[in-house]
Amino acid sequence: MASNAEFDPVSPSGLKSILKKHGLYAKKSFGQNFLVDGNILDIIIENAGLEKDDNVIEVGPGLGALTLRILEEIPDGELLSIEKDRELCSILRQELSEFDNFSLVEADILEYKLEEELEDKGFKDLDYKLMANLPYNITSPLIRLFLERETRPEKMVLMVQREVAERIVAEPGGKDYGTLSIAVQYYARAEIQHYISPEVFVPRPRVESAIITLDLTDPHPERADNEDIFFKVVRAMFQQRRKIIRNSLSKAAQVDFPRDKVDEALKRAEIDPKIRGEKLSIQRVIKLSNELTKLL
């Protein structure tokens, strides 16, 4: 329950009332599109599988539609929300002041030094959940930030642009398969749970969205011997995705693996040097990077 009975950020009329009251509007520069459909909130909450004592980080709470639902589900847990917009932070602090398990940080999540905050709150590696309705322009860097950080969430439940969601879950051989697909699927089991129409947002975006879950407790079963080399291989494969793998690895900018080492690694990994990188599964990329690691 919000402290103000008139505070209703979920319905279109309630949202417009709040924005009008405070003289605010959705800022394009922040990629703000406010969700105004309780059924979609139900789907997000269901896929998070929240327990009453769960710890949660929410990125981009906006006016608190999802925030309120999370707080209802975790009375014995902690919710840390991170919001860049100063004006929205002011409203959230006012309307959610009754919740003693809610804290709010005004910051750009891509620049904020989060580790100290997590340590202070007792959030441990693979022992909290990340939930967000993400501005489309920060989706990929934010996912990578949380996949690669020292203290990772056990699960991410994210609302993202449909195109990005389909890139994340893409299989080898398709046009959507790329660096993001491999990076996410290496660290987590990724699943699209629901597609979302633009009509449930104010203002309406020009694209469809999707709810995607990333389970970091279920990463790819095979691991690279040297992850730095593995991700160099992945980046090289897709810098110029029309190139054959042999040329990609030996001519990619900032990689420049020696041609003789590339040829030998491909031979040992039993990979056709004329195949394009987009055809290779994660397992085969791991095998190739492991062979390169032995040779370099």
Rank of each mutant, 00 (worst) to 15 (best):
E199T: 14
K113G: 14
L126G: 07
L214H: 06
E116N: 14
I286P: 00
A253C: 01
A236G: 10
L118C: 09
L295C: 07
V234W: 06
E199C: 10
S81L: 14
A26T: 00
K16E: 03
K27N: 14
E150N: 14
L104Y: 00
K16L: 04
S90H: 08
R242D: 02
Q185Y: 08
L142A: 07
R162G: 09
K121L: 15
A224P: 02
V285S: 01
K267N: 12
V202W: 12
G38R: 09
R284T: 07
P258V: 03
E208C: 05
I40K: 00
I57P: 01
R206N: 15
I244P: 07
V184Q: 02
I286L: 10
L19P: 06
A269E: 06
Y112I: 01
K21H: 15
K175G: 12
E154W: 07
A2G: 03
P273F: 01
R152I: 09
I275T: 14
K27A: 11
S81F: 06
S140D: 01
L280I: 01
E264V: 02
I196A: 06
L126E: 07
Y177L: 02
G60W: 04
K113E: 14
S81M: 14
L110M: 12
S140L: 04
G31N: 10
E148K: 08
Y136K: 07
Q239I: 10
Y195G: 05
R189L: 08
E171V: 14
R93A: 05
V200H: 13
R259F: 12
D37H: 12
R235V: 03
Y128P: 01
E150G: 06
P273R: 00
L114A: 05
I45F: 05
K20N: 15
I138E: 05
G178L: 12
L104W: 00
A165N: 02
D85M: 10
L147G: 02
A65C: 13
A165W: 06
L142R: 09
E166Q: 14
V169F: 12
L134P: 11
P12V: 03
V169E: 03
D260G: 05
K279P: 00
